[in-house]
Design a protein around this nucleic acid. Structure first.
Length: 913
DNA sequence: CTCTCCCGCCACCCG
DNA sequence: CGGGTGGCGGGAGAG
């Protein structure tokens, strides 16, 4: 009954492990302790769980989402195997349960179930069952448990990899040395180490990690990914993989008929000997280089990637890949070998998929469907600045056109085609058809409780465009991974996080349906009467994480991934005749009906290509004089590289027309070391800041008259982490018509991830002199802000208090109580994304990040680096995920990050200031 | 049935 | 040698 009695084989368990063993309160501990060393199976975790305190719910759940935080104890190279410390809090009992169950081996579950171990009486003392909180449940628990039993899917390598990746920042600071302890990770993720090897090996092949020492890996992140891919591409070309693939595909050789070596006979070059391509950086001196069979998996992984990179179609079928690999490996071309190879390829593919580099597809041939994968990662490595470029940049012009056009349509009320989404009517009134179309491709997404693509616009476009639907799916379930590639083929790299748990932060980052409570707006300001918006308090849908679409609520879908949003038509009424675009390119665009100028704007921004795409021309008809508003939230903002064109796309709230100014702003901020030097930041936590003055000063550099103004509104609970930004008016000098004269507006707004649960200030456009004059920072700090909307005659006041808006329940809360303001979804918030390293380490939610990363815990002025780091991560956070609402913990860097949107708003204010 | 790929035995191989 | 690695393929879940 001690460790030794713990069966290693499922078959033995029933006999070896008795009910008594399991129910004995003390036994479990013994198991855990002694078994810890021997248990190499999946159930090791469960054993360890037994060691957990009686309040496991707080300690044990493998809440990956909460592991983003850098663990205080990170540096110890030798990982501490304190499960209880590493585990984060569950975000929901259900999720927790799932996690626990998934951690537990099926065998044990079955065994225990059979023995009725979950019955309250018998197990009331059982730590394990307690941890599951099953002691209060009746027999139904068994069924429940059965249902909860982790499916094969839940235990998949891909999912595991996602969890793994979620622990580390995609783009760690160069100075950061993140160490990965295999032990720690394995325990943390509740899997045996063997599985971690699989992941790490593939990651290593791409140089995302490198082995530092025994049981220790260094995390590099994706910084060098472009470079690596470029090299692999080159190598692949040298290997003439494309020809090989073409040959094999053309041959349509049956697996069994395939004559290995035939290719060579045909004159194809022989593959190089397996050798791991080493592009490793000096960061982590790889200890013992290659050993044991050349690290087969790594080499396979690299070659697999090469195949994609050299492929014109970017699609590689497994059989072809396997054949090539087999041949290169000089393996015996037997079926068994093939099978094995395919297995490995699946393993690799799972990891690559988690990295949002490839996507499962199927290739239909005469012989039927063949499993294949499509490369969805960057394909253009000409620039090493791949990272942090707005993902939108990754979309092909055509798709952009489609996509953005679609977005435009959305905002222009043509979303109707997607029955599952709200429909915005031309008149500016919002109609809704919530999921009226069961057959909607997006409907399926609901199960996961994701906002993503519910709106359908982009996803729909992609699905239509891409038959294999891989893009759409990628969009749906990929992690937000800023892709620098401007290549058209690159979809939105978003990493999906465990929809199974009902938490998918990534989705939020992709496309979201935003609901705004515009009542105030519609009723009190000039917009009233034109916008038929019923104010409906959106109940928090955190539980289901489904967008709470309420009738009569305006919404806007925007790709939040890159956090850049289109706000087409936003200003249609606000400032006819005046556009933010100095060059007027957008406005003068000859009506190409559905096209949004945003793409072009962005493109210009990111690529600095003045040439406007015809497709991006703005339809004057629909949008009249509407100017384009492009808000770009800086994802991982690297303060050090803002000057780099390649990173432009990552600018947070970069005014289309004033990148330069923005840079100055940034420079200013950085110079002052005040990441929080913006009202947004300071207000993030509803905490008065003394730095408020900073922004205004900084804004001076950006007081370009052409700057767009936005209203930034803390979203209703239903938005779950999204802030709504809508144009507050045109530039002060634009001389746009007063708000009162605004035509029906199509609910121009932007929804951006709300990284902060704290109070959100509403910024008014500079059109309001009064507002402008006031220090933005000050306003922000005042908590709920009472603003006058610009617009003559409309004394409309937009009172925006985070408390009131964010959470209906806490509507009465003032900014003074940040904690209360925390979203009910705090624990439910999608915290799976890596974006969480931003969160306060002390946050109870986020427990021990295993990574050794510098974490600024103090409110002390953050360094540019730290700023960058946190900012990047913040994007994908929902208010709840933001972590500790406690004021004292608010980090400036975080604030700053979260405030990107706001900063944009501040700009105008500075002038007056 | 095929497709996937989890799982973990056990051989390597390093310190 | 012990333990970290990871090749490998049986076999079972998923579709």
């Amino acid at each position: 009954m001690e460790a030794g009695s713990l069966p290693r084989k499922a078959g033995m368990e029933v006999n070896c492990l008795t009910l008594k063993d399991l129910i004995n309160p003390r036994q479990p501990r013994d198991f855990a302790i002694e078994d810890g060393e021997h248990a190499q199976k999946e159930n090791i975790f469960i054993d360890r769980l037994r060691m957990a305190p009686k309040t496991p719910i707080k300690n044990e759940p493998i809440d990956l989402s909460k592991q983003k935080i850098f663990s205080p104890e990170r540096n110890p190279i030798t990982p501490v195997k304190h499960v209880d410390r590493q585990q984060a809090e569950p975000w929901t009992p259900t999720a927790n349960l799932k996690m626990l169950i998934s951690a537990a081996s099926p065998d044990i579950r079955d065994r225990e179930k059979k023995k009725g171990l979950f019955r309250p009486i018998e197990n009331k003392d059982d730590a394990f069952t307690d941890s599951l909180q099953l002691d209060v449940v009746g027999d139904s628990t068994v069924d429940e448990f059965e249902k909860q039993r982790p499916s094969r899917k839940q235990k998949s390598l891909g999912l595991l990899c996602q969890k793994f990746l979620a622990r580390y920042p995609s783009y760690p600071l160069s100075t950061e040395k993140t160490t990965i302890s295999l032990d720690e990770v394995a325990v943390s993720l509740g899997v045996e180490r063997r599985r971690i090897y699989d992941i790490v090996n593939v990651l290593e092949s791409l140089h995302l990690v490198s082995r530092v020492a025994k049981n220790q890996y260094g995390w590099h992140g994706r910084h060098s990914l472009p470079k690596t891919l470029r090299n692999l591409q080159r190598l692949g070309e040298e290997q003439k993989y494309e020809e090989q693939m073409a040959f094999l595909q053309q041959k349509e050789l049956d697996l069994m008929d395939y004559k290995f070596g035939e290719r060579k006979k045909d004159g194809y070059p022989e593959a190089q000997d397996p050798q791991l391509v080493d592009f490793s950086e000096p960061d982590y001196p790889s200890s013992s280089a290659n050993s044991r069979k050349d690290k087969s998996l790594r080499i396979m992984s690299q070659k697999f990637v090469m195949l994609f990179l050299v492929s014109k179609t970017k699609i590689v079928t497994l059989d072809v890949a396997a054949k090539i690999l087999i041949e290169e490996g000089h393996d015996t071309p037997d079926h068994s070998k093939f099978k094995t190879k395919v297995r490995r390829l699946y393993d690799i593919a799972n990891v690559l998929t988690s990295l949002a580099l490839i996507k499962k597809v199927h290739v239909t041939e005469e012989r039927g469907r063949k499993p294949a994968f499509k490369w969805i990662g960057p394909v253009d490595f000409s620039s090493s600045d791949e990272q942090r470029v707005d993902v939108s940049a990754s979309v092909s012009p055509e798709l952009k056109r489609e996509t953005y056009g679609q977005i435009q349509v959305c905002t222009k009320q043509k979303l109707a085609r997607h029955g599952s989404f709200n429909t915005v009517q031309a008149s500016g009134r919002i109609q809704r058809k919530v999921n009226s179309e069961p057959s909607s491709p997006y409907r399926e997404e609901q199960g996961s409780g994701c906002y993503s693509l519910k709106i359908g616009s982009l996803a729909a476009v992609y699905r239509q465009k891409i038959e294999d639907s891989s893009w759409g799916e990628a969009l749906d379930s990929k992690r937000v991974e800023p892709s620098s590639s401007l290549d058209p083929v690159v979809p939105f790299p978003v990493l999906s996080v465990d929809p199974e748990y009902g938490v998918n932060p990534l989705d939020h980052s992709v496309f979201s349906v935003a609901h705004m409570d515009l009542q105030t707006f519609s009723r009190q300001n000039s917009l009233s009467g034109q916008v038929d918006v019923s104010v409906t308090s959106v109940a928090s849908a955190v539980e289901s994480l489904k967008p709470a679409l309420l009738a009569g609520q305006p919404f806007l879908c925007v790709p939040a991934t890159s956090l850049f949003m289109l706000c087409g038509g936003l200003q249609e009424g606000l400032s006819p005749g005046s556009g933010p675009e100095k060059d007027g390119r957008i406005s003068e665009a000859p009506g190409s009906g559905e096209l949004s100028s945003a793409p072009s704007a962005q493109k210009r921004l990111c690529e600095k290509q003045p040439e406007a795409e015809p497709a991006t021309k703005r339809p004057s008809r629909d949008y009249e004089e509407s100017s384009l508003s492009l808000i770009m939230l800086k994802t991982p903002s690297d303060s050090t590289d803002f000057a780099s064109p390649g990173t432009l796309g990552s600018w947070a709230f970069t005014p289309l027309e004033d990148i330069h100014g923005n840079r100055q702003l940034r420079a200013s901020e950085e110079a002052s070391g005040k990441a929080t030097a913006n009202c947004f930041a300071s207000s993030e936590w509803g905490h008065p800041s003394t730095d408020v003055e900073k922004p205004s000063k900084e804004n001076e550099s950006t007081k370009d008259s052409s700057l767009l103004q936005y209203f930034y509104v803390q979203p209703p609970a239903g938005l779950n982490g999204f802030n709504v930004v809508f144009p507050g008016g045109q530039n002060p000098h634009s001389g746009g018509p007063p708000a009162g004269q605004l035509p029906p507006f199509g609910v121009p707004c932007m929804v951006v991830p709300a990284p902060t649960p704290g109070p959100f200030p509403v910024l008014c456009s500079p059109a309001m002199p009064g507002l402008v004059s006031s220090a933005p920072g000050t306003l922000a700090n005042t908590g709920p802000v009472n603003f006058s909307l610009p617009g003559p005659g409309s004394a409309a006041h937009l009172v925006i208090g985070p408390a009131g808006i964010v959470n209906p329940k806490s509507s009465t809360l003032s900014s003074a109580d940040p904690q209360l303001q925390g979203q009910p979804s705090l624990n439910l918030s999608p915290v799976m994304s890596r974006s969480h390293n931003v969160i306060q380490p002390e946050s109870p939610i986020y427990v021990g990040h295993p990574v050794s990363v510098k974490l600024q815990k103090s409110p002390v002025p953050v360094t540019p680096k730290s700023i960058r780091h946190t900012q990047r991560e913040t994007f994908f956070k929902t208010p709840g995920s933001l972590g500790d609402p406690v004021p004292k913990r608010r980090e400036k860097s975080q604030s700053r990050n979260a405030s990107s949107a706001q900063r944009r708003l501040e700009i105008p204010g500075s002038g007056a200031d």
